[in-house]
Write a protein that binds this DNA or RNA. Structure first.
Lengths: 209, 209
DNA sequence: TGAGAACCGTAACGTTCGTTACGGTAAATT
DNA sequence: AATTTACCGTAACGAACGTTACGGTTCTCA
């Protein structure tokens, strides 16, 4: 029986246990065991089962917990001119690349992919909802506003977002998931984010197509 | 002890066993067992171990076997004008989307990602080499020729290829790996490939930037 | 035709790991 | 202060599965 606990209802001790589980995911991948988690979290296995039901419940709670920690940066809608829009998109791209290339994100996505391979899609759905979809929900209003303001020319908001997705991430995520060693320093991320933004403007900037 | 057999040196019976393993991967994901494979292939477990060494050897041989089955379409370098280039890129994009959205590719990539999560990167390296990198080796000469012919304006071949990668695949692969149910019919693939090609020309077409 | 190799189906072995149970300790509650 | 509750550390149980072993059958080849 899997127990669902809303991330807001977690006690501090429970959050600490989930953080330890997260660390175990990063360190051991999907080979993590209930024993290794309990040792790392300095708690008993009995407690893990009482709190989270079973192994799947623990993994699900951990993914949800991590998702709840990622805050959506506030979008500045006040002034909407071309430089402000470019800065917003660039910041988006930077944050996104930073998150995607973090060890935590890699471990989490790998876990979710493995999970999906076994027929269960709950972890994959959660990761998708808090990754790709959350980004869409945040970015699409910006694109829509920019379209209405005449800064961009976007026939299909969703399609434009997916293109932005592709321009920013390119082959980075799949290569990282497959174990390719990529060195993504701050400088490289900044440069890639800038290039993706520039390319996006070239495709959707008002008056360019 | 893992045994390496070059795909060309496989007997027909061995190929049949690997095809059965492939089917097991698609059907059962990474939860496939040696027993389920032997049952599906109608062979004994003893044979599996004699031929492939251990579980990892079987999985590796299967991935290599699948990789050897994907033939690289011949690129028509004879006439190189704008319509021919566009057709080539579009065909590339179509084939790529078709492969990536196939159940076999999804199962294989999931397997490789899971494998990479356990610290081993052999499967991930093979998949990367025969997926993303093989595409690059095929496409980059085309881009270079087009650049030299004045059809495209490409400062960095590798970067341009990665952009094409992003424009074509966008969020498709990660969504499929995470279990999102996407319906990618032939019509949708054709349309997406055409749009990606058009966008690529908009970014790198000679005289557009 | 007969001996040996290759292979199938099944049983058996040992390990790992999810899950449960138990004794002991500290904290909370009455 | 006494009793209950929560939790830790560890041990134990049972199932799944990788791996090995074995008897029987088919195929190869001399």
């Amino acid at each position: 029986m899997t127990i669902h606990i809303e991330p807001e209802a977690l006690t501090n001790r429970q959050k600490a246990v989930l953080d330890a589980t997260l660390a175990a995911m990063v360190a051991e991948g999907d080979a993590l065991t209930m024993s290794s988690v309990s040792k790392r979290a300095a708690c008993s296995k009995e407690t893990l089962y009482k709190w989270f039901g079973d192994r799947d419940g623990l993994l699900t709670a951990t993914v949800r917990w991590q998702a709840s920690k990622v805050h959506a940066p506030v979008i500045d809608k006040a002034r909407l001119d071309r430089p402000a829009l470019a800065a917003t998109l660039e910041q988006f791209a930077r944050e996104w690349l930073t998150v995607i290339s973090s060890e935590t994100s890699i471990a989490l996505n790998r876990m979710a992919v493995s999970h999906a391979a076994s027929g269960k899609t709950s972890l994959g759905t959660i990761v998708l909802k808090n990754g790709r979809q959350a980004m869409g929900r945040r970015l699409e209003p910006v694109l829509e506003a920019a379209d209405k303001a005449g800064l961009l020319n976007i026939p299909d908001i969703d399609s434009a977002f997916r293109t932005f997705f592709g321009l920013v991430l390119r082959d980075v995520q799949i290569r990282l998931l497959l174990g390719d060693k990529i060195k993504l320093g701050a400088a490289k991320i900044t440069a890639d984010a800038a290039e993706a933004t520039q390319q996006f403007f070239a495709l959707y900037g008002a008056g360019t197509n």
